[in-house]
Amino acid sequence: MTALAHVPTPTGQPAAPPPLPRGGRRRLLPYLLLLPGAAWLLLFFAVPLFQLAAASLYDPSGSLSTGYALTWAFGNYPDALQAYWPQFGRSFLYAGIALVLAVLMGYPLAYAIAQKAGRWKSLLLVCVVAPMFTSFLVRTLAWKTILSDNGWLVGLLRDVHLLGPDGRLLATPVAVVLGLTYNFLPFLVLPLYASLERLDYRLLEAAGDLYASPVQTFRRVTLPLSMPGLIAGTLLFFIPATGDYINAELLGTPNEYMVGNVIDSAFLVRLDYPQGAALSFLLMAAILAVVFVYLRRAGTEEVL
């Protein structure tokens, strides 16, 4: 460092020797700030992930009592998929339908809160988040009551003949999709709200001034400008919804089970660790693939 200090800078002025201890600490600071998070991730994400990967390759004939051997049993993957592809497909189907419903409800909601609510904005936002103050499980159990066969909702739907005399909601795919939609809606609304909040209404006025009808204004200005929020929101909705198993468990029957239920039972009931781990990795890979394709397409078209 002392030698460096005498090297003239391009202007010909000798560089002032940097105050060593402070400069050194400055360079370290970003790493120090990273340290807690990095350590956390390593301990509780990377290590378990690695373990899970190892478990998915265990000899499937092993068990908790006899012990497992790492035999690089790649066959676990096709086996798991073959046994549980219906649950797999259902996960994506239900989450996809729920996502569409959530966007149809959540976009107008976020738009209204961000652009039209005026001084009610904060209160409405609290209302969106408020359900999160109670547990996920309790909320889903509440839905069980709402959708139950002798509840008012089913009664009403039967009265207006939307449901047959012994039609029901609970224990049907409809109930599971409704539960997913409800439970993950705030994850969609909040990022969407954040980007619609930043939308300058004067741009909407300018579009109207330039002959864009309200529909065209939405299509050409509002939607593209809220795309970052919509993408973030759909991901935050879709990823946990696909892996969810509470809704199918409480509001559905084994006929509605999603891949989360299978993983749950593999680990906690059947104690088939290799299969549970293989299914977990398959789910992760499938979600990553969907997200990747989605981001590629959305990213090239409308996003800034």
Binding site: E205, A206, A207, D209, Y211
Partner: peptide
């Protein structure tokens, strides 16, 4: 048509598309 005091140009469109906006609509 209005030339706005705050310009109100569309940030997600390039200059060409900004200028073409009214005609296209």
């Amino acid at each position: 048509n209005t030339v706005f005091q705050s310009y109100a140009l569309f940030p997600h469109l390039n200059i060409f598309d900004n200028v073409a906006f009214g005609l296209r609509r």
